[in-house]
């Protein structure tokens, strides 16, 4: 059974087709990248898959179940997690608490036990605490654990967001420009991290502008332009595709795709 299958997905905003009839599949352990010029509809596509927008057309199928337009928290319960292009960090918490929040589905329990500080509540919190510290170490943030999340550098926040998503042990992880705003060293670290996560069996769906990174780590690439899929295939196939080259290197049509 296919892990994640996107079937004919489309959405319009005010009569303009932001995304139209996009289909592809993602299997466990794969790294599938969605690329395309600015404004091609990559983030919109992500928002539909992850339940932030309800698609106008098409279906999202996760492990055989139709999850189209399902609320993000229900998708999370079914093993889908994501990060955001414009970070969504809990600024009112410490770095550690942000990471612990990723364990919510594992650590949650009866409120009454939490209110009364019962041993069961403490046990759940302790397990999440230990798991979160291990994850912070994995993304190189263990020393920042007790700092306010709002004080971290942009690159660190990116890694924190990935750590929080990994805490859920997702089956599918959607990463929206994880390396944006990161320097070369940080990009390489994130690059390794993604490959490692994929190797452990998690499927990765990636939107990324760093073409070197995309070509290096992707097992499969989907190319969008003007909201439509114009090509799909291995990195080598895609980089030879004339339609892709046209979209990127600017025929007149490609040049005003910004926005």
């Amino acid at each position: 059974m296919t892990l994640l299958s996107v079937e004919g997905l489309g959405i319009s905003f005010g009569g303009i087709k932001a995304v139209h009839d996009v289909s592809f599949k993602v299997e466990p352990g794969e790294i599938v990248s969605v690329i395309g010029p600015n404004g091609a509809g990559k983030t919109t596509l992500f928002n539909m898959i992850s339940g932030v927008y309800r698609p106008g057309l098409g279906r999202v199928v996760l492990e055989g179940e139709d999850v189209t337009g399902m609320a993000p928290f229900r998708l999370a319960q079914r093993g889908m997690s994501r990060t955001f292009q414009n970070l969504q960090i809990f600024q009112n918490m410490t770095v550690l608490e942000n990471a612990i929040s990723g364990f919510h589905l594992q650590e949650k329990g009866p409120v009454l036990a939490d209110l009364l500080h019962l041993p069961s509540s403490r046990r759940r919190a302790r397990a999440a605490d230990a798991g979160a510290r291990a994850l912070l170490a994995r993304v190189g943030l263990e020393r920042a654990a007790d700092r306010e999340a709002g004080n971290l550098s942009y690159g660190s926040l990116k890694r924190l967001e990935i750590a929080r998503a990994l805490a859920m042990k997702p089956k599918v992880l959607l990463l929206d420009e994880p390396a944006a705003g990161c320097n070369a060293v940080e990009t390489e670290e994130i690059d390794h991290l993604i490959a490692e996560v994929a190797a452990s069996g998690t499927a990765i769906l990636l939107v990324e502008h760093d073409m070197k990174m995309v070509m290096r780590i992707s097992s499969h690439i989907v190319v969008l332009d003007h909201g439509e899929k114009i090509a799909e295939g291995s990195p080598a196939e895609v980089s030879r595709n004339p339609a892709v080259i046209a979209a990127y290197l600017g025929t007149e049509e490609g040049a005003d795709a910004d926005g």
């Binding site: 993000p72 960090i89 919510h104």
Partner: peptide
């Protein structure tokens, strides 16, 4: 923690379940 998380970002709170 779940309460404070949604205070920080409802969108992110949803994505962690």
């Amino acid at each position: 923690r779940a309460l404070r998380a949604l205070h920080g970002s409802e969108i992110a709170a949803g994505t962690v379940g």
